[in-house]
Simulated assay, not measured.
Amino acid sequence: MTVFLIAEIKVTDDGWVPEYAARVHEIAERHSGRYLSRTANIETLEGPASDQTVIALIAFPSREDVMAFAADPEYGPLGAARRLGSVCHFRLIDDTDIAGAIPYLAQPR
């Protein structure tokens, strides 16, 4: 089952950004992750605007692949630097339809 990692980041100290941006996609790729977007072009269409400065969307074949990416020893120092220099939320969603009405999405388990 495909899963999507949604990283919502508000950068508070950008010292970590250059190394993180240069290296993290290769680490994700080693764990079968594929970036679908990593952007600062964030437009609020409904509800209160958020203060994130970057949102990334990464597809992985499974939750296990995401967890392997997060636990990768090479990612550890990058993730620690990101946490020190930002306020962030990492959310994991799957490709199911909770209402069960969209035929091309998987049914919830």
Results as ranks from 00 to 15, higher is better:
Thr2His: 07
Val3Thr: 03
Phe4Cys: 09
Leu5Asn: 12
Leu5Tyr: 10
Ala7Leu: 05
Val11Ser: 08
Thr12Pro: 00
Thr12Ser: 09
Asp13Val: 05
Gly15Asn: 05
Val17Tyr: 11
Pro18Asp: 04
Glu19Ser: 08
Glu19Gly: 01
Ala21Lys: 07
Ala22Pro: 10
Arg23Tyr: 02
Val24Lys: 07
Glu26Trp: 03
Ile27Ala: 02
Ile27Lys: 00
Ile27Pro: 03
Ile27Gly: 02
Ala28Glu: 02
Arg30Cys: 01
His31Ala: 02
His31Leu: 07
Ser32Met: 07
Gly33Ser: 11
Arg34Ser: 14
Tyr35Glu: 06
Leu36Trp: 06
Ser37Asp: 04
Ser37Cys: 06
Ala40Ser: 15
Asn41Cys: 08
Ile42Tyr: 03
Ile42Gly: 06
Leu45Val: 15
Leu45Cys: 14
Gly47Thr: 12
Pro48Ile: 08
Pro48Ser: 12
Ala49Cys: 06
Ala49Met: 15
Ser50Thr: 15
Asp51Asn: 11
Gln52Phe: 14
Thr53Gln: 00
Val54Lys: 02
Val54Phe: 05
Val54Cys: 09
Ala56Asn: 11
Ala56Cys: 11
Phe60Glu: 10
Pro61Asn: 00
Ser62Asp: 02
Arg63Val: 12
Arg63Lys: 13
Asp65Asn: 14
Ala68Phe: 05
Ala70Thr: 09
Asp72Lys: 01
Pro73Glu: 06
Glu74Ile: 10
Tyr75Thr: 01
Leu78Pro: 00
Ala81Met: 05
Ala81Lys: 03
Arg83Ile: 12
Gly85Leu: 14
Gly85Met: 13
Cys88Gln: 09
His89Asp: 07
Leu92Ser: 07
Leu92Glu: 11
Ile93Gly: 10
Ile93Leu: 14
Thr96Ala: 02
Asp97Ala: 03
Ile98Gly: 02
Ala99Trp: 06
Ala99Ile: 09
Ala99Thr: 13
Gly100Ile: 06
Ala101Arg: 10
Ala101Val: 15
Ile102Pro: 06
Ile102Val: 15
Ile102Asp: 04
Pro103Glu: 10
Leu105Asp: 01
Leu105Lys: 02
Pro108Ile: 03
Arg109Val: 15
